[in-house]
């Protein structure tokens, strides 16, 4: 087992004449919480889609969980978890049914699903809601549930695309506690976010501007490098350079 879970070199995605992602290269270490930042339209969602096998790179190379992103997309899918920016559970199914569905998708046995369901709900202190329709849960609860469902099959790395959009600071805080717990358990977390306070929680962050990675490092190092008091300031310094508008 190598210490690098994800590694890309010169990864590029073009849509016609438009280069959405322009030769990005970086590594993510196992167990890291890697923040993938960038303004809207900077290309972070496109980059993330390539890493998850949802989109095919135009050029470049890379591996995720030890598999080649150009050739072994299907293998990669077994080893990653994904939580989209938009809500990823089914509102008209109950908590239990949602968990069972995702467990089934990843080939877990019935017994395993039942065991992990209890475990998961205990972790959220949620057991009483097992037969509640997901649609009737508050947004913050749904997001926490979605995160744990995305990691139900114990992926080596989980991709979170703006997981905390639209919830209050307290719930975001609780959500990050879950992320920390997972990372402590050995799951690598790859997260995109708009909130710069969240960037501070990451082990390392990269900041994309106009399809390229402009800064990469631990939040403390970046702040030193750009002589800024906060990540927010670093981000704003870099975002000012952007020529692209959404």
């Amino acid at each position: 087992m190598s210490d690098t879970i994800l590694s890309v070199r010169d990864l590029t995605k073009k849509f016609g004449a438009f280069t959405a992602v322009d030769r990005i290269s970086f590594d993510v270490a196992r167990g890291e919480i890697f923040g993938f930042l960038g303004a809207n339209g900077a290309g972070k969602t496109t980059a993330m889609r390539m890493l998850c096998g949802l989109s095919y790179p135009t050029s470049g190379s890379g591996t995720v969980a030890g598999f080649d992103i150009m050739r072994q997309g299907e293998r990669i899918k077994r080893h990653i978890g994904y939580m989209s920016q938009r809500f990823s559970l089914y509102d008209d199914l109950t908590v239990r049914e949602n968990i069972r569905l995702y467990g089934g998708i990843y080939g877990l046995t019935r017994r395993e699903i039942a065991r992990r369901t209890v475990e998961l709900l205990d972790r959220l202190d949620f057991r009483s809601e097992i037969d509640t329709l997901v649609g009737s849960l508050p947004l913050g609860w749904k997001q926490k549930l979605a995160f744990l469902v995305a990691t139900l099959h114990r992926p080596e790395i989980v991709f979170l695309d703006e997981p905390t959009g639209g919830v209050d600071p307290l719930t975001r805080r609780q959500f990050w506690e879950l992320i920390y717990e997972s990372a402590a358990g050995g799951t690598t977390v790859f997260v995109t976010t708009h909130y710069m306070d969240e960037a501070e929680y990451c082990s390392r962050v990269s900041i994309m501007v106009d399809g390229r990675i402009r800064a990469l490092g631990a939040p403390a190092d970046l702040k030193k490098e750009f002589a800024a008091a906060s990540m927010d300031e670093v981000f704003r310094l870099l975002a000012r350079e952007a020529k692209r508008t959404e």
């Binding site: 096998g53 949802l54 990653i80 994904y82 990823s88």
Partner: peptide, 9 residues
């Protein structure tokens, strides 16, 4: 949700 399904195996 389709996206999540497509990321799955």
């Amino acid at each position: 949700t389709m996206e999540v399904l497509l990321v799955s195996p």
